[in-house]
Each structure stands twice: as structure tokens, then as C-alpha cells.
Design a protein around this nucleic acid. Sequence first.
DNA 1: CGTTTTTGCCTTTTT
DNA 2: GGCAAAAACG
Length: 710
Amino acid sequence: MNYLHDLNAAQLEAVQYTEGPLLVLAGAGTGKTKVLTHRIAHIIEQGKAGPHNILAVTFTNKAAKEMQERISQITQSYGLNLGTFHSVAAKLLRQYANFFDLSPSFTIINADDQVKLVKSLMVERGIDTSTYAPKVILSIISRWKDMGLLSGKVTEQDASSRPYQIALDIYRSYQTRLVQSNAVDFGDLLLYNNELLLNNPDILEMYQQKFKYILIDEYQDTNVVQYSWARMLAKQHGNLCCVGDDDQSIYSWRGAEVGNILRFEKDFAGAKVIKLEQNYRSTTPILQAAASVIQNNKHRHGKTLWTERGKGDPVRIVSCWNDKEEARFVTSEIMRLMNDKTPANEIAILVRAGFQTRPFEEALIANAIPYKIIGGLKFYDRMEIRDLLSYIRVALNLQDDLALERIINVPKRAIGDTTVKSIKAYARENNLSMFGAIEKMLELGLVKNKLGEALGILVRQFHAWGQRYQKERPADVTKGILEDSGYMAMLKEEKTDESRGRLENLNEMLRAIADFENIAAFMEHTSLVMDHDGEPDARGYVSLMTLHASKGLEFDAVFLPGWEEGVFPHQKAITEEGAKGLEEERRIAYVGITRAKKWVCITHAESRRIFHEFVNSLPSRFIAEIPPGSSLRSSSKGGSMSYRPESFTKRVVAPQSQKTGSEDSYRAGRRVNHASFGAGIIVRHSSDNLEIAFDKVGMKTIKKDFVQLV
DNA sequence: CGTTTTTGCCTTTTT
DNA sequence: GGCAAAAACG
């Protein structure tokens, strides 16, 4: 029983309350993982259920791995069903693949392939892809999947407007094509699972009996399908424990429904709710600042974090002229911290969007500070890796058109655009896969000479590789692919730094494959385990990442740059989602602040280069929500800052003085008048366009010429 | 017909 | 300041 000793009262209650539905509202840094791991260990230790009768799902592989390790430290847990939603779903679906006209070896396609498929379907039926972006159409389809809607269940009403009509049309053929290619996307993994249980009471009952205790981590991030799936599975025993924090729900754009966690007590009769409010991470001013921001949200359970850490430094809020100066300021502060013996890996810069990392990278490099971008370019997203994966995919599944198209002419083998188009046309006419079409065309002598020869070689090679995978070691066959295809030779020929790096990456992948029994297991791993690169615990590196990527992490010092209206909160979140979008932005701010153990420094720039024009913005409204009592405001624009090197003023003033008088008068904060929209205030401006918050009609983007200064 | 060069689009967050 | 699709080139 000694594993219960280091728990506080609320944590202990959550661990011991094993029977019936339970919602654990776990604020940032309150020991959420501890509760989950101890609870699982407790169920096993008490003999309530064996590991194989417990199901625990997380969102990230990292979380799953950490939980597994920590449980193993407490008790024997062999056979525990623990994994991400997607990996658990994939495992289950492979057993019932034939229910969905798939073979158990189906491929899981990634986002890139999804967009490509949607686009090619749109082009096929003559829909203009510049008016309706394939990405947008895909996101509509994905949201339907997240809501549990197969194309047949989408109603006329769901698809009333034009983009939705297009999306529905594409959705149907998209699914057909995926099935023909023996492939599923991420959304399908859960959607099909849900359908499986809905339509097959016998299968559902079997799993209901198997899983006596179900635990869900990060419950605030679940979508409708995940909710429905878990609810069905838990129905018989009713022992569903959901752990999450409504204030940290930041994935609505991926289909997550905050409503799931807000509705918990309604959905599960007799549910118990336990709040974890003692924070073990941050100082009081940090928690106060976070609380005063998040309390502006209407839709939340509401909880008050407190700490015994005691007083600490106030949250700093610093104004800068522009993005470059902001980066230099943050970098100089980082150097100061490192001089004061704060290790680099205890320092993080958290940005709203990926492109904001650039000025920081430049400043960090200029000052020789080692840094790592977390979650930026992923190992499996690299060109050469995706090429090799495509080769493997085709070798394993000749129907995988998307993969074949990617590598059909890599390395160059004289199979160009026109040939690919004719192959696709032939495939469509005869209802064949591309590979099938090539074989048929060769058989009928429709392609001749050099082209026929090149295609013939390719066909024979893929058959050979596929057969070799059946009996030989996967790493050997894969190496064979790289050699036989000429891919390796192509890179060796190039002899640039880049090509050498690519070769190194391919070798690393061969080494990774060597750890797997069979190639199918490796492919499952690559499609579901994406967090490979940039471990945040890397010693000696400052971490640079998006706020989203920072969830679950903690650092001594956290820098939060770019707190400007339009950047953060992001303009799109507000225009597209309105008040809901703003609340989510605020939760992102909350996540950012609560990553810090000792120091938070928020900065905003008055002018920022976005694309190739200067954009002026007002400070984020979230800054105004932080009370002076827990924060300290200053400016790096001149005057009082002691750490400000001479060069700052020189460089910073220059762009300002370059502006013409008339441009300058349209700056953020000025009131303007518009003939039809009335009075408003400029929120941001670029060379031609003004973003104006009108008193009556809300946000609009207006050309400068159409408004007058008041 | 296939390869090289140029243009034109960007950028919210990702299992 | 990057990468993919279209246009020009061979």
C-alpha cells in the first residue's frame, strides 16, 4: 500500500474511487498522470481486475509511454491495454477489417496524402481548386468523421452551402477510393470503430465484458466519435474514469468538443467529480496571472489553483518595437538566465504559430545559444523518408495509388506527367488501380519502347520486393529496395551536404526497421508514432515550439512572444469561430502561462513583418486581463531597461522613421469612419489593408482608401 | 514528351 | 523567404 502515501487528499480520493463514472478535473501541474498511474496500479493491486481487463487511452504516444513506465514502477502490469486512441483503434480495426471491405493489412494515410487525394478528386470532376481549397474541403470531411458521420449519414441540412455540397460529393468518392486502395485515414480509425460497435451488438458485448475499468486521459480533447465509442464500451460496468482540464482544451479545430467534459455529469448519471487544485509546478504570481486570464471564459467548470511554492517574481510584460527587437530582447534575457545558472533545457520560447520561430532562431544563432525546435519538421515528414515509405507501401499493397504516384518517377526513370495522366485515365476507365492499369497496358502492348521497358522493370521489381518481404528480414529487403530502385545511387551521385544528410536519414531508418519483426509492424509504428524528433528533455538546448506542442511540458522560464491582436488571439480564430474561438485562444494563453515554474515573460511588438509587409498591431487583449498585482510592465523600446544594448535603439528607430506621414496616421488604435459601416477602431494595418473593429458590425478588413480618420 | 525554370501561393494550431 | 504547380525549354 506504500504507493498511496505520496498522494494528497484529492488525489487519494480519485485513486480509490474506482466504481462508477468519475471525472477528475485536473488543473495544470496538479499531478494528473500520478492519479492515472496510481489508480491503474491500485485496481490491479486490489485485485479488482487484471491488467488485460483495463483499458487506458491517451492522445499522444509520449503520454502512453510515460504512463506505462510509471505503472511498471509500482506494479506488474503485463497485458494492460494502454495506448493512444488511434493505436488502440487501429489494433481493433485490423481484426474486423473485412467488415469495411478492407484487408487486415490496410494502410493508414497521412494528412499530405489526404489533401492530394481530395485535390485529385476535385480536379477529376472539374471543381475549381482555387475557389475551393482542397484543404478546406478536407477539413469539412474530417469534421464529419469526427462527429461520427459516414457520408450516408450526412444530411441535406449538413450540406446546405456550396462548400459543404462539394465536400459531401467528394466525401463519397474519397471513401470509395480509400477502400479501393485498401487504406484508411486517421478519422476512419475511430469512425469505423464506432460503426463496428454500433452495428454489431455481439462484438460490443464482448468488449464491454472485457474492459471492466476504462480510463481516458486528456478528456477535454475527445471528439464526438471518441466519446461515443468510450461510452458504449463502458456501458456495462460503468467504471469510466475521465481525467482532463476544460481550461486546457485547445484542439477544437481537430474536432475536439469541450462540451464532452462540460457535460460529463449530465451524460453519466450519478457521476462523481473530483477537482485537483493543488499545483506543484508554479509560483503564486504565475498562477494568479493564469487564473485572471482564464476567468474571462464563460464556459468552464471553474477551479482555483493554489500552491505552497509561495511567492515568486511577477510575470513580466514587455513592449517591443518590432519582431526583430523582440527576438533580440528575449535572447538577451535567455543569456542572462543562463549566466545565472538556469540550464538551457529549463528555458522555452512558446509561439502561437510555426512561422513565428524564425526571428528567434536567427537571434539565438547569432548569440551561439543552442536550441531545438520541438515538433517542427518531423523525421517521417522528410522527403527521402516519405519516398522510401511510399516504396514500401506499394510493395506491400500494390493498390496504393497515392504512394505509387509519389515515387513512380523518383529517381527519374522517364515516366513523366503525361504518362502518369494516361495511366490514371486508363485506371479510371477500367476500374483498376494504377498498378493494375500499368500491368494491363503492358499486357495489351499499349505502351512501347523505352517507356514500356521502364514500366515493365518497375512492375517486376515491386512484385519481387513484395515477395521478399514475406520471407526475408525487413531491413534487408528495404535496403534492397533502395539499391534496386536506384534511389541510393541517385543520392550518392548528388554529393551535396543535403544529399549526404538524406543518406544518413535513410540509414537511420534502416536501423529502425531492424528493430521490428516484420515490416507491417514497422509501418504501423510510422503512421501512428509521430513524435520521434526533438526530445524536449534534450540537455543543453533552449526549446522553441508552438503553444500547442508545449501542452504537458514544464520549464523554469517561459517566454511568450507575439501577444498581439491578430496574432494571439489569432485573427482567424475570431473571424471564423467568434466567441467560441476567442475562448479557445484564451485557453491556449492559459496553457502557455502555466508551463512555467518560476518565470514568465510576455512580449508584444508594435510592428511585425508578416509575408513581406509590415503589420502594426495592438497589444493582445489577454495582456490587459493580467492584473498589475501579479505582473510587471516595461518596455524595451528605450529608456529604463538596463540590459538594453546601444544597438537596439539605432536599429529599432530606423523603420519607424522611414514611414511617410500619411501611412503612419493609419496606425493601430486610431479611430476611423466608414461610409456604410460607421465608426470603428483600427486593430492592425498593413500597407493597403486595415483591419477595423467597427462598433456596430464587428471585424472587417477594409482598403485604406475607403475610410477616413476621425 | 520529359526536364528545368519561373511564378504564385502562402501561414493557426496536429494525433 | 519557402515550396508546389504552371510555363518555358530542350
